[in-house]
């Protein structure tokens, strides 16, 4: 089982994507999706040897909902900054966020979350994998911003990836 499905999450994602592309619910489409969903992870497994230490369950869903809510709030904040803030009043700065997460998958999810949420874009990671470089559009207190990101997103990701 483990050798046939090295990445069950990827298999599920591919099947769902295939059904969505087909735009209909049919047994044939499901079987073809399952075929690709089995074949693609098998052939790409050499590039991705270890199974990501992700736990599928309630914390993952709750994290997704939290991020969607934050995206909507973020958009109104950024829209306000773009429309009503003069260029010289913008306090852009770089943040360097120390990471407690361990796996590359967790870094990717955290970086994606940071890019989609209030006034921050993740730009780079340090070569030792312990710090994330983030650009903030407007912050009065960089320290507090780093603490907020760590408390709001990283702590939740620690529970999902372990």
């Amino acid at each position: 089982m483990r050798r046939l499905f090295p990445h069950p999450g990827l298999t599920l994602l591919l099947v769902v994507m295939w059904m969505l592309v087909l735009n209909e619910l049919s047994v044939g489409g499901f079987l073809l999706g399952l075929f690709f969903g089995t074949l693609v992870p098998l052939f790409t497994a050499p590039f991705w040897p270890e199974r990501p230490p992700v736990r599928y369950g309630w914390p993952l869903i709750a994290y997704g909902l939290l991020v969607i809510g934050d995206i909507i709030v973020a958009n109104f904040q950024v829209a306000r900054l773009i429309l009503f803030c003069r260029n010289r009043d913008l306090r852009s700065c770089w943040l360097s966020i120390p990471l407690d997460l361990q796996s590359a998958e967790a870094f990717t999810v955290l970086a994606g979350t940071i890019s989609l949420t209030p006034g921050t874009v993740s730009a780079d990671i340090s070569t030792d994998g312990r710090h994330l470089l983030v650009h903030a559009l407007d912050t009065s207190d960089p320290e507090a911003e780093v603490a907020r990101i760590k408390a709001r997103y990283e702590r939740r990701l620690m529970e999902i990836f372990r």
Binding site: S96, D124, I125, S126, T127, D128, R130, H131, L133
Partner: peptide, 8 residues
């Protein structure tokens, strides 16, 4: 980066 040997 805060670590001395590290680079972006």
């Amino acid at each position: 980066p805060p670590h001395p040997d590290a680079e972006w």
